[in-house]
Design a protein around this nucleic acid. Structure first.
Lengths: 204, 204
DNA sequence: CCTACCGATCGGTAGG
DNA sequence: CCTACCGATCGGTAGG
């Protein structure tokens, strides 16, 4: 049984840890620096999880929850189709633009950091990103089923491009502070969804 | 004056360091682990540069040289135009596909790691990436000037998409080991270059 | 949630 | 290029 106080502290820890991790990385998130910025002793902080690996795992879970609330929840009630898909993409870009995390998209940073580090964290990130890509794919397929998206567009191909474009916007934003990248990403997405194999851009 | 022996050791250091950095990050590249994997003492290794920051700087420069040799040099003799641009993109994707660096594109990893860490390394990476984006832009503009690329295509927009797509291919490759991403990137690039504002996909 | 520790490793230096 | 160090910090534990 956790006390109310304990849960509040746990939340404080996660809020701070998730931000530090997005800025400096999940590996550079040390127990010493985290405890200092929370005005806790190292072992006091340590009491809330068993090891650094456990800390990293709950931080990833906390980031996943924030991502879901910010990007996925807003479209949950809408019927499948192009509008829902467009709103999902808009929410995703907004999540990048609004700096939901101090260091930009948490998962762009974390996947890049851990793709060369085998272990539990890498596996968890693969699982989360795999789920996200499948969700995107489903949105595209459903929009095609209701006839609002060109059936010639290969779902796998569209998922790849969407993912690349939004991550690309995040990359430009973070490295150059180039807010213009959001507009460019929107244009790219519009061009993708107006794709027409037989010739002629769609009329919207 | 550096001895022949000293230069050889320096090269051995850089070759190993650049690979470790691409896999584990420039910050996790520690003097201890690097010296062990080179069978040198820490201070023996240290003698080759003044500080960790200096090591990171020469590692970034070594990676830049490898990138230039692998991606930029191959097209240097060709006349500007669509073919040159396509070959540049092919070399870039090949650089990702062939795992020129153990951990995938060195600059994808390094920029993602340092975009939230102000300092010299971040500035150097911004400068290198800025130069690369300008080079890409020039290739596109020149191809338009010789009439081989649709003049309606906005160079800035095309640069953004190209960069995003290739980095996206690297991301898929590294996280999922998904070699198929290279083919998807090729398709995306082809679609981008066959773009036609007035309607109708180009015929090649 | 704390004080008081542990061995290992960090970047770096002295002196050769 | 080496041995032999330095203070600081790492993740983690004992015991309360």
């Amino acid at each position: 049984m956790k006390s109310q106080r304990g849960i509040e502290t746990q939340n404080r820890i996660l809020e701070e840890a998730v931000q530090i991790a997005s800025l400096e990385g999940l590996e550079s998130l040390t127990i010493g620096t985290l405890s200092k910025s929370l005005a806790l002793s190292k072992s006091g902080l340590f009491a809330h999880f068993g090891s650094k690996l456990e800390l990293q795992k709950i931080v990833v879970k906390a980031a996943e929850k924030i991502f879901e609330e910010t990007v996925i929840e807003p479209v949950k009630g809408l019927p499948y189709g192009k509008e829902r898909l467009m709103k999902l993409c808009a929410a995703w870009l907004s999540y990048v633009e609004q700096n939901t995390f101090r260091g930009g998209c948490f998962f762009a940073a974390a996947t890049s950091e851990f793709d060369g580090r085998p272990g539990e964290i890498r596996d968890i990130l693969k699982h989360i990103m795999g789920g996200w890509l499948r969700l995107l794919r489903k949105e595209i397929v459903e929009a095609q089923h209701v006839g609002q998206l060109n059936a010639d567009l290969l779902p796998e191909q569209a998922v790849f491009e969407l993912q690349s474009i939004v991550m690309g916007a995040n990359w430009h934003m973070q490295l150059f502070g180039d807010i213009n990248a959001i507009e460019q990403a929107k244009k790219s997405i519009e061009r993708l969804f107006s794709y027409d194999k037989e010739g002629g851009q769609g009329n919207g």
